[in-house]
Computed example of a mutant assay.
Amino acid sequence: MNTKLVMTSSAILMYAAGIILTFAPDLILQVLELSTDQISLFLMQIVGALYFGFGMLNWMNKGRPIGGIYNRPVAIANLSHFMIAGLALLKGLLSTPELPSMIWVVGILYIGFGITFGVLLFRHPIADRSKTK
Rank of each mutant, 00 (worst) to 15 (best):
S40I: 01
M83K: 05
M60P: 03
G86D: 02
L27V: 14
S9G: 01
L93S: 02
A16Y: 09
L5D: 04
I115T: 07
V6A: 08
G92V: 07
G48W: 02
G18V: 01
M14K: 06
G86T: 01
L94Q: 10
L109F: 13
A49G: 15
R123M: 11
P73S: 02
G86S: 03
K4S: 07
G107N: 04
Q30R: 15
R123H: 10
E33Q: 13
L29W: 03
T96K: 15
I20A: 09
F54C: 07
A77V: 06
M83T: 15
G92D: 08
I108H: 03
L57F: 00
L121N: 10
G18N: 00
M56C: 12
I111N: 01
A16P: 00
G107I: 06
P65K: 08
L13G: 05
I19M: 01
I76R: 09
P73L: 00
L90K: 06
V105I: 13
N61Q: 11
M1W: 07
F23R: 05
Y110N: 11
S40C: 05
N78L: 05
V6T: 09
L27Q: 14
I39L: 14
H124M: 14
G112E: 03
E33Y: 08
G92T: 07
G118L: 07
G53S: 11
A11I: 04
Y70V: 06
L121C: 10
Q30F: 10
I28S: 13
G112K: 05
L57Q: 04
T116D: 06
A77P: 01
H124E: 15
S101G: 11
G114H: 01
F54V: 10
L87P: 05
L87E: 05
V105P: 03
N71S: 09
R123A: 06
T96M: 13
I108M: 07
L41A: 06
P100L: 09
W59F: 13
A16I: 15
P73H: 04
G92I: 04
A49Y: 10
H124C: 14
I19N: 03
T3H: 05
N71E: 11
H81W: 14
G53Q: 01
G114S: 02
S35M: 07
I66A: 07
L43E: 12
R72Y: 03
F122H: 12
L29V: 03
L41G: 11
L50I: 15
I115V: 15
D37R: 06
I12F: 04
D37E: 11
W104Y: 14
R64T: 08
Y70E: 15
L89N: 11
N58Q: 08
Y70Q: 13
I76Y: 08
F117L: 04
L21C: 09
I46M: 12
I20S: 03
Y110G: 02
G92F: 06
V105T: 09
D26K: 14
M56Q: 12
L13A: 11
A17L: 15
V106E: 09
M56R: 09
I126W: 13
L50K: 12
F52M: 06
W104T: 11
I103V: 13
L27I: 14
L94A: 11
D26C: 05
S35Q: 11
F42T: 14
I19G: 02
Y110D: 09
M83C: 11
L43M: 15
M83I: 14
L90A: 14
G86Y: 01
S95N: 12
E33R: 13
T22R: 05
